[in-house]
């Protein structure tokens, strides 16, 4: 299921002195089965864009197509319920949404809302808890007694329980320690591979973009300034500098090496693995 934005504008508090245009003429696609990274600074319109993906916001003008459904400014709220099942959004610090007495009940909340019986929903919940790597012995305990990392997994399982086609992640690793971050990113990668989930990742971590994404959307002040695979986006360091965007560490290192005049790369590496391969290749050839 692909998602398409066509000339979408979104204006907050239209007609008041506080009017603010958060999205400007956005035309962009998120291909089915892709791992799309959305990057841009705080205030670039990322979260406004996200909220259009499952109809939390409706475009002021233009339209968004999700699951063959066209959403415009006049779409009725009732018609959006179905859509929310298809696009699961994991917001920043999603552990803030937990409220049930037990972990299982909390994960089962969404499927129940979408018409599953208590038993069906709990069965899905147990399945999802396993999928995100939660141990069995915590399932009937309170979610509020877990560690921060585990609470976040419960919240993510609660979204996966809707069995969405698209999983949207808004800085899912914020506030975790490096080990927690790595495990979390590997978990999403696994979901992407095994469940054929389309993933939309909002992030500030260029290394995550380089390591996992197949597609990148760059936002600046509400406009899409680039939409291409990461290797295209990171090809032009000058352009990135102008837009105050960082390079992945491996790419940055490769440019530093190139500056010495002793190394040269045909294709700029994005990850440590690519970089090591390119360096090993140069070393074996004996440099320039």
């Amino acid at each position: 299921m692909s998602i398409h934005f066509e000339k979408v504008n979104y204006i907050y508090q239209a007609g008041t002195p506080f009017e603010h245009q958060a999205l400007k003429n956005v035309t962009v696609s998120i291909p089915k089965g892709s791992y799309t990274a959305i990057i841009g600074h705080t205030g670039s319109g990322k979260s406004t864009l996200l909220q259009h993906l499952n109809g939390l916001l409706k475009p002021s003008s233009g339209h968004v197509t999700v699951a063959d459904k066209e959403i415009t400014s006049t779409t009725k709220n009732k018609e959006l319920g179905e859509l929310r099942k298809h696009v699961g959004i994991v917001f920043q610090f999603p552990e803030a949404q937990l409220f049930e007495e037990t972990v299982v009940k909390d994960i089962a909340f969404a499927p129940k809302n979408f018409g599953k019986t208590q038993e069906e929903a709990e069965k899905i919940a147990i399945e999802m808890a396993d999928l995100v790597g939660l141990p069995d012995n915590i399932l009937n305990g309170s979610p509020f007694e877990l560690s921060g990392g585990q609470m976040r997994r419960v919240a993510i399982a609660g979204i996966l329980a809707m069995k969405p086609d698209v999983l949207v992640l808004d800085e899912p690793t914020a506030g975790l320690d490096p080990k927690g971050r790595l495990e979390m990113m590997q978990m999403f990668e696994k979901l992407h591979q095994r469940q054929q989930l389309t993933i939309v990742l909002v992030t500030h971590q260029m290394d995550d973009v380089a390591n996992y994404a197949s597609h990148t959307i760059v936002l600046e002040k509400g406009e899409v300034i680039a939409a291409a695979p990461p290797k295209e986006v990171f090809k032009n360091p000058q352009w990135l500098l102008e837009h105050h965007l960082a390079l992945p560490k491996a790419t940055k290192f490769a440019y530093e090496l190139q500056k010495t005049g002793k190394f040269s790369f045909d294709k700029m590496p994005l990850t440590e693995k690519d970089l090591a391969a390119a360096i090993a290749n140069s070393l074996k050839r004996g440099g320039n």
């Binding site: 709220n77 929310r84 099942k85 803030a96 949404q97 969404a110 979204i159």
Partner: peptide, 19 residues
Amino acid sequence: DETEKIMNAQRSRGVNFGE
């Protein structure tokens, strides 16, 4: 702000507020 965030999160989990 917090209220709005939580409302959005729960809406995404199929809650219809005010209906």
